[in-house]
Design a protein around this nucleic acid. Sequence first.
DNA 1: GCGCCTCTCGCACACCGTGCGAGAGGTTTT
DNA 2: AAAACCTCTCGCACGGTGTGCGAGAGGCGC
Lengths: 234, 234
Amino acid sequence: MSKQISSVWTREPRPARTPGRSREEIVRATLDLLDTEGLDGLSMRKLGARLGSGATTIYWYVENKDELLELAYNEVWGEIVLPDPEEPGWREAVSAFAHSMRAAMLRHPWVGSLIGRLPALGPNALSLADRLRKAFTLAGFKGLDIDYANAALTAYVFGMVIPEIAWEASMGGEELDQESMNETFQKVAKDFPDLLERVVEVNAKISDTDALRETSFAFGLATMLDGLEARLRA
Amino acid sequence: MSKQISSVWTREPRPARTPGRSREEIVRATLDLLDTEGLDGLSMRKLGARLGSGATTIYWYVENKDELLELAYNEVWGEIVLPDPEEPGWREAVSAFAHSMRAAMLRHPWVGSLIGRLPALGPNALSLADRLRKAFTLAGFKGLDIDYANAALTAYVFGMVIPEIAWEASMGGEELDQESMNETFQKVAKDFPDLLERVVEVNAKISDTDALRETSFAFGLATMLDGLEARLRA
DNA sequence: GCGCCTCTCGCACACCGTGCGAGAGGTTTT
DNA sequence: AAAACCTCTCGCACGGTGTGCGAGAGGCGC
């Protein structure tokens, strides 16, 4: 047996004898804590308290905190849906997948800080990759192109949503009114008049920043899908 | 004065009297430490030691650790080049930009964990956004489409590279030979025979994983650029 | 009753970010 | 010359963190 990637998914879990506590229960509590208090709010002691147990009890079910995060991460992947590509056509299916992925990430903003640290090797991530592969196969991609298309699409979603999360986080949960927004930008971008002018202009025209972000997301998604379709015809 | 986003870039820095230590020197040391020991390896005490000072001295130049990270983050953006789009054509310029961005991120893998936490409001990021806007304007995009194209392209790069970083990190710096790789996947993906078969097959065919990743990156990039060009013609 | 195996958890260690306040050293004002 | 002040350094301490260790509780087979 050679060297392995260290991950919850590469070692045998402790044989579940279904006692009082279970790994499943712990993961659920972890998700709760992450969603309400964020990545920094998750500590073994707090998690123990929430479970009505000592902090170190958790280490019976899980090797370390990173494994816990891998398990929580896996749950998020489980929330992403990919419609059957046979029915509405691959483009619609894949597009729905992208939107669902974005929604799941925004529901659990702490994933934004995990994607660069933990590989997605959990069963939910793999299952999704498997189904996405099928969709692209059905679309007509062949050989490695299937995997490339796979990677490109998920990359786009990742890349759009992760900065969205950062942006949201930096506002500390409070909605920023337009005036504050412009003021911030005036301070920050004072050496880039073109950029500044654009931002102020856009802010004046479009007040709903959520809608703007969705539009931007849809634009890039359509662009990516157009590109994929073009590659299909080539 | 209304509420602002809290960031190094939205508050006045301490007036530089160019004494012994400077913010610049601190940022350089921070980068060093981050590059050699990673995000977890950076602590105020270690940084102080490297600067030959007490840990809390740093707090004279910087409000808190996050500000330090923002400054380091900004430096990475400064390493990204965008060729003049007038000369080789916008597509080549933008493509070179994407590759340069990827290279900078891989040189400083710790950015992978920051992108989801800190907004890129530093002058280097803004300057790059400004120049990228010019490139897309030159390409023929109009109005909001310029910004959408901007976001889509950088999102793609982010999304490709961030998981690359995670992957690299999870191998703990050691190169994994092919056998271990397959073994890992056999364990992890045993419920997804199609996926598993593909991975083993690909691994057998392509031994150089770096080259594979570059090819995958180039594929998605070309796809995105094709999509953008299509949108330009519409 | 005895041993064993599964599970809990208090304690302790080394580390973290950072608030505070004492002071050093230089410059400016009186 | 002396006093006041301003910039900068940093030791100490506080309340956290992840987690190794070892003592023990509870149930189950002999």
